[in-house]
Design a protein around this nucleic acid. Structure first.
Lengths: 148, 148
DNA sequence: CCTAAAACCTATAGTTACTGGAGCTTCAAG
DNA sequence: CTTGAAGCTCCAGTAACTATAGGTTTTAGG
């Protein structure tokens, strides 16, 4: 007895994605199937909106769909199967920390550039060196899947 | 007169990507064409390695190739055309800050989960709510390209 | 110098995560 | 009860790789 009233277009507008993307997520089983009107049009509720918003943000942060699937499962299974959930959470946390570290370096470098430029003086642009430095990603990720 | 000695496989191994990915980047003009042996095999130097390493890290952070192209250009043009470079740097910095903000929320939430789990007590998993919250991405990104 | 395995070459096809279009149906405002 | 916006399904296309096929080059060993 939830309020499944939102048509797909409105949902798309509120989370900032394309209508087809929503249908695609449903197709691959990432988003639960919504209710339908008599004429077979999808109608969504608040739960759908939150899940979709999460997916979109996670995608913007570069998480692949399998990782997002894991995180969603983590959120769904409230208390059962702790050991496995714990392991997933820990793995995702590692991935998140690695990203934050690299982004912070890049941020510092971009800020430095803007700073120096203001003084009309910049000889050595270290943007590349900043992220090229391999010390930033503590071990890990050498030779397997892109991330997470 | 640079030391262009590294074969493609070794370069791939050192930066942690696939051989084909390197050839692909060359094909789309992201990576400069390397020298070739008499037998037409590619040989790379330190400059190539650094550029490639940067590209790979930026990709892992979720930057699309067009954004990476911009950042590389920013690094190449040492002092010419400051105004434009400044604008690009500022735009990328905004994107970076937005990502860091969201990742920090997710990180806090994952840490909280692991903490609570340790005490065998977790009723409310807020992983979704953490990133679902749209307040985290200050305005921006509603209705256009995925990011950056 | 001569092999033979490992690494390289080009070209093409497949994968992931969407995005767009064609052709038709449903919804809701007037 | 019409009519235009929004929805539906299905299929084709894009970005950024990734894998495979079939052939050539390198290089270490004999």
């Amino acid at each position: 007895m939830r309020e499944l009233t939102m048509p797909i277009g409105e949902l798309a507008r509120t989370v900032g994605c394309k209508v087809q993307t929503i249908r695609y997520y449903e197709q691959i089983g990432l988003l639960p199937v919504p209710g339908r009107t008599a004429g077979a049009q999808r109608r969504y509720g608040a739960a759908h909106r939150e899940k979709l918003s999460f997916i979109r943000h996670a995608r913007e942060l570069g998480f692949p769909l399998p990782a997002i699937r894991e995180l969603l499962a983590l959120a769904d299974q409230r208390e059962s199967d702790c050991a496995q959930a714990d392991q997933i959470a820990r793995r995702q946390l590692d991935a998140v920390i690695r990203r934050i570290t690299m982004l912070n370096s890049l941020r510092a470098e971009l800020e430095r550039m803007l700073q120096h430029r203001r003084g009309h003086r910049i000889r050595d642009c270290r943007v590349i060196a900043t992220l090229a430095d391999h010390g930033l990603c503590q071990e890990a990720h050498h030779g397997h899947a892109p991330q997470a």
